[in-house]
Amino acid sequence: MSDEKRYLKLHLIVLALVVIAELIGTKSYKLGPGTIVLLPMLYALLLGLLTGPKFLKIIDKEDMNAAEGLITVSVMLLMAKYGTNIGPTLPLIIKSGPALILQEFGNLGTVLLGMPFALLLGLRREAIGATFSIAREPNLAIISDMYGLDSPEGRGVMGVYVAGTVFGSIFFGLFAGFAATALPLHPYALAMASGVGSASMMSAAVGALVEIFPNMAEEITALGAASNLATGADGVYMSIFMALPMCEWLYRKLIRDRAEEVIKG
């Protein structure tokens, strides 16, 4: 098959995937304090997977490699859209206090807590993609751009992305409720922490907090939304300039320490 025909075939398959996925539409199910949200993009991912040689056999190995190359370009429109979402809210982000800005660095907790556990569980380069962020769309774009999605780093970010898409909001709903009742942290601080950079995860966490502190409902909702906007604005830059370099550094350090231990026996 010529290259041109191969690309035409891929685009037509994706057209079909988009139409089917959007026809099914967003579905959400209440479960405990959180909600499970199923989005069209998730159906597109799973249906795309089904076209493969293991299932429907519509595409072959070379088609898959070609599709890989298309992802990096296709994310660009999303990044442009992302920018246009942030622009109008800049004044609010600037106005929000020092706590709101400084707690953004707390998002690096993904690296500090995630990386050691990922390595303990036996992941290697996958750990970098898996732990530098909570793996939402902009983070996928970054890894796709810097390492490629077919790299180990790409598999790591894809794995956490799929996990987060399927049960992220239910997890944050449950965990925020747990943190609010079990930890000595102020509800305002927990509200700011809820802005992890995903509207559905933030809504689930804030929902749980409001349930527990109904007399602070307004403040909690406002702080959660503002923090989510801040993460939306700085997330890409934080990921590229801080979280990824930190991941690379911690990865090298931990892997070396372990190698030395093995040698010393």
């Binding site: 660095f105 998002n107 993904t110 995630g114 601080a189």
Partner: peptide, 24 residues
Amino acid sequence: RIVVVAIFVFVGTYLGSAVIAHTV
């Protein structure tokens, strides 16, 4: 393993931000 890592990643970002916000 990725699912377990995802849980640590989620807890990490939430607690990291909450502790800093509380302190500030």
